[in-house]
Structure formats: C-alpha cells, structure tokens
C-alpha cells in the first residue's frame, strides 16, 4: 500500500529531523513580523501558542470519529450528508466557521477532493493537509486524469464506478464519507474509527480492510 504510512507523528505527518539548520531569510521574516505584531499589541505570544495548540489538536482521528459515527448511526449520517459542519460540531469538534460538505462513496460512486487554485482542505477538522495534496502534480492532474492519479495511490477504479472530483474553488470544504468495509458488522464505533485513514477521507485511499 503506497499510503499505508506506519511511521507517522501524532499529527498524521512523517516525523521530521530536528530544526537546527542555519537560520533562513524566511525564518528571519517570520520572527520579525511576529515580534512586531506582538509589540504593537495586535496579537500576543499566548495567542500564537494557543493557535498552534489548536491546530495540533486537529488530526485525521477527528474525521475518522465522524465517519465511524455515520457508519453506525443512520440518523447521524443523514445529518452529516445534509450539513457536515453542523454534524461535526454536534460531536464536539471545534471547527470554527468551516463550511463542510460530506460526499458519500457507494458501490457506484467514488469521490475525490482537490483544490486546483490553492490548497483548500478541511483543516479545521482533519488538521493540516499532507504535502502531496499541495503539489503541482496533484493539483494539475486530479481534474484531468483522476483515475491515473488514483492508480498511483493504489486504487484501481472499475469502469462502471463513477468518479466525482470536487474542486474546492470557494467557501466550501469537502470530506469523503468512505463506504463501510465488508465484514465489519461486529465492530463498535471506536474499532470502526481505527479503519478510517486520512486518505480515505480525501478519496485517494480506502478504509483499512479487516486483518
């Protein structure tokens, strides 16, 4: 599985090496403008720390909990498909003003999310996007040859399945509601959430199969 990462930090991204390289021009700029904003009373150091903590608390696990709830609670699933932002808030997730649309995968339909204009992503639910989501290659090809892109992620879509690509061009953000894997009837919500990967909520992956 090309995207079955097993060496990820709690953020869902690979671990990075320590940041003790030479100070860069852009790091100088970040420090300088942050200090100026703090000195001028526009924001505080505590606000910056709290904002980082808030983003760090957002991860694919939040989306996985939403998906697992939808798999086990038909009424919740109906609310999710009607207004995914409100459904996530109902579960207690602090997603701010995010306008979220959930799109459902079925036997006949597979959904794929992209932002060709920049890198819009349901970050207030799932945390920061993976690097590949922001690349020229993904953003260019996901609308032109999405099946070829899916193949690079290990998904071969049958010709009879319709692929719906969602380009996040304005104020909406999208999350894929993957199809519940076969043979999971006996699993509870928490166990089901363990099957839901980040990529399965972008559409470049499928939920983990049972061992």
């Amino acid at each position: 599985m090309p995207h079955d990462h097993h060496d990820l930090s709690p953020s869902g991204h690979p671990y990075r090496t320590d940041n003790d390289g030479p100070l860069t021009y852009w790091q100088q700029m970040e420090i300088a403008l942050r200090e100026l904003l703090i000195e001028k009373g526009i924001l505080t150091a505590a606000e910056v720390s709290a904002q980082i903590d808030l983003m760090d608390s957002r991860s694919p696990a939040n989306g996985a909990a939403v998906v697992a709830r939808a798999w086990t609670d038909p009424d919740f699933k109906a609310r999710l498909l009607d207004n995914a932002g409100d459904a996530a808030r109902e579960m207690g997730f602090d997603i701010g003003v995010l306008h979220l649309i959930a799109v459902e995968n079925t036997d006949m339909v597979h959904n794929l999310i992209v932002c060709t204009l920049c890198s819009c992503y349901p970050r207030n639910l799932l945390g920061l996007p993976p690097d590949w989501y922001k690349t020229r290659a993904y953003r260019s090809r996901a609308v032109r040859e999405p099946r070829a892109v899916l193949a690079e992620f290990g998904i071969t879509l049958p010709e009879t399945v319709q692929l719906r690509v969602h380009d996040s061009t304005a104020d909406m953000r999208y999350i894929v509601l993957p199809a519940r894997p076969a043979g999971t009837e006996g699993l509870d919500e928490a166990a089901l959430a363990q099957l839901v990967t980040r990529d399965s909520m972008i559409g470049t992956g499928l939920p983990r199969a049972l061992e």
């Binding site: 090309p2 995207h3 930090s9 953020s11 991204h13 690979p14 671990y15 990075r16 940041n19 852009w26 790091q27 970040e30 420090i31 942050r34 910056v48 980082i52 983003m55 760090d56 992209v114 060709t116 204009l117 920061l128 993976p130 690097d131 590949w132 690349t135 020229r136 290659a137 993904y138 953003r139 260019s140 090809r141 996901a142 609308v143 032109r144 892109v149 690079e152 992620f153 380009d167």
Partner: peptide, 23 residues
C-alpha cells in the same frame, strides 16, 4: 494549474517545523 500536464504525485511528506506552525 488544474488540468496541466504534470509528472507523478510526489508521495514524500514532512511534519511541520515550529516556524511553519507559527506562520
């Protein structure tokens, strides 16, 4: 950018540095 020809999607990723999180 949407629709342009491009090579394979690069799969490598990185966790974010403190200065990136601050930005």
């Amino acid at each position: 950018m949407g629709g342009d020809a491009a090579g394979p999607v690069p799969m490598e990723g990185h966790d974010f540095a403190l200065w990136e999180k601050r930005v």
